[in-house]
Design a protein around this nucleic acid. Structure first.
Length: 509
RNA sequence: GGCCCGUUGGUCAAGCGGUCAAGACACCGGCCUCUCACGCCGGUAACGGGAGUUCGAUUCUCCCACGGGUCACCA
């Protein structure tokens, strides 16, 4: 993994990191972190620490490379700014081999050339007759350098674009493209390498065997192919991943995820909403390997790390990020957690994002664990929430501090007057001693006494011929106690709330 | 504009010359002795267009269209 320390982390970075990590660790390899800080303009203070911290939150630990404290590994340094001597040694070799030369063009010169190329409908770039310093007299060049003229070091391409080269990519399969003829920049005027040069030198000296990077690098692959061979290095395997895309509501087309338009593109989004790290990983795995979902349904409890990850199973076209699907994945992840794990997750999240909720939860953790246990753990666990920020709303009625009833929640067909009578009567019969069955028998009896049927089959077949059903009565009770029409098992809720609270809420209703 | 990559239901996708073209999400019905959720059963819905190769093309070739990427002293 070789990010720039820009301080912002994108879902695409994580997508790449997960595939890097899986490929490394399923093949007995080493997962390396190298910091690509060759561009000063993009560097942000603390960016490296942030990258490491974020990856760690997703369980991605590097075997080797840059760490917050320094370097870990024998092929360092792992920050490109500290590796100048490596680049300069290879640059010297290329110059001596006649494969690199100084170029004195200013930005202005290059811009002019570009405009000319445009008007003459020629290909852009520095090549052929446009490479004006390529065949400059060596003494003249030395003289200019001695005079302190600014220059960059360019690659001397020997490629012929008439010729095609075949290339085997780990994800895209067989590719074919023209040979490179661009004399691209190796060292910038400040002596710092460009990505193209740095990656070749670093990957060689760091003994990298597999490069996994985004498909935006495909177009410069011919450059890299020629450069690898000019350096005399053995090329690693390359795999170019498809991009994570997003459906644009405005234009109705797929496009790259954008930091500005798509909140879900930044990792902070997942932290703020409180999605478990595993949910994100799980979803990325479904995007990454098409057979992951199948494997998952056969191995519901296994760690995703047990899955046999294959680059050949990675999609070669960009995948849309689907929030609805992601939420479903996350619900499944949470549904498999124990009440304790759920509490832990909500606690950690609320501590940072919802202090009121955090205080309530930590006041009595056993109580919280108990209500998180409702409908959890069995064969058919509830799937109520996709992230921790949704939890509060689901469990608010367990706390008097959060509990409130909106009149509109009560069923319309029952008048306020009738409702009060029903609830008053229910107070008389409600007992903390009842078990699940006894509890429901009382609700049924109550319904019958007010003329509501308990024969649901008959009611469904012919609802008009009844005043209402036991559903209506239990909804009245449910709203009075939970403030909402939908909830998990009401008996379990009442048991947890305790007799006094239940009666109090019924009285206040 | 050049070059490269891609195009199967609303979305993610399997498929790798002969399939009634999987599966998942979403959606719509139905069932599950209170709601919701879960689960189960069922349903709607797809090979961008045109040539060619072939007994036979979603699968192979070519052309076109569309989408994406790239053409920096950014990565």
């Amino acid at each position: 993994m070789a990010p720039s320390p820009t301080g912002s982390m994108h879902i695409g970075n994580l997508y790449g990191a997960v595939s890097d990590e899986r490929i490394a660790h399923t093949s007995g390899g080493t997962f390396i972190l190298r910091i690509e800080d060759t561009d000063d303009k993009r560097k942000v203070e603390g960016g490296v620490e942030k990258i490491i911290k974020y990856f760690s939150r997703f369980g991605l630990e590097f075997d080797e490379g840059a760490t917050a404290e320094g370097d870990n590994g024998k092929y360092g340094p792992y920050r490109q700014r500290q590796r100048a001597k490596f680049y300069h040694i290879i640059a010297r070799k290329l110059v001596l081999d006649g494969r690199a030369y100084p170029c004195f063009c200013s930005e202005e010169d290059l811009k002019l050339a570009h405009e000319k190329q445009e008007s003459e409908k020629e290909n852009f770039g520095y090549y052929g007759k446009w490479a004006i310093h390529r065949d400059m007299d060596i003494d003249e060049a030395i003289e200019k350098i001695k005079n302190g003229e600014s220059f960059v070091l360019r690659f001397r391409s020997l490629g012929n674009p008439e010729k095609k080269i075949d290339f085997k990519d780990g994800i895209k399969g067989n590719l074919s493209f023209p040979e490179n003829n661009q004399d691209f920049v190796l060292l910038k005027s400040d002596g710092i390498p460009t990505y193209h040069f740095a990656h070749v030198v670093d990957d060689h000296f760091m003994r990298v065997t597999d490069v996994v990077r985004g498909e935006e690098w495909l177009s410069t692959l011919p450059w890299h192919v020629e450069l690898w061979s000019a350096c005399g290095f053995k090329r690693p395997r390359f795999s170019h991943t498809a991009q994570v895309l997003k459906f644009d509501e405005e234009t109705g087309a797929k496009r790259k995820m954008s930091k500005r338009k798509d909140p879900e593109s930044t990792l902070e989004f997942y932290f703020e909403k409180g999605y478990p790290a595993n949910s994100v990983l799980e979803y990325l795995m479904t995007l990454l390997n098409s057979n992951f979902e199948q494997w998952r349904s056969a191995n519901p409890m296994a760690s995703y790390k047990e899955f046999d990850f294959k680059t050949s199973k990675m999609g070669s076209s960009g995948a849309l990020f689907d929030l609805a699907k992601f939420n479903d994945v996350s619900k499944n992840v949470i549904a498999k957690m124990s009440a304790e794990e759920v509490l832990e997750g909500v606690l950690a999240w609320s501590k940072e994002y919802d202090n009121e909720f955090y205080t309530l939860l930590s006041k009595d953790k056993e109580y919280a664990k108990a209500f998180f246990s409702i409908g959890r753990g069995g064969k058919k666990p509830r799937k109520d929430f996709a992230c921790w920020s949704e939890v509060k709303d689901f469990v608010s009625y367990f706390y008097n501090e959060l509990f409130s009833v909106n009149e509109e929640e009560y069923p319309e067909k029952i008048s306020a007057d009738e409702r009060k009578k029903i609830l008053a009567e229910y107070i008389n019969v409600y007992s903390a001693e009842d078990d699940q069955n006894g509890w429901f028998e009382k609700v049924k009896a109550l319904s019958e006494s007010f003329g509501y049927t308990t024969d649901m089959k008959a009611y469904k077949q012919n609802p008009e011929s009844f005043k209402g059903s036991v559903t209506d009565v239990s909804t009245v009770i449910r709203v009075a106690i939970t403030g909402r029409q939908n909830s998990p098992d009401l008996f379990a809720i009442c048991s947890l709330l305790g007799y006094d609270t239940v009666i109090e809420r019924l009285k206040n209703a």
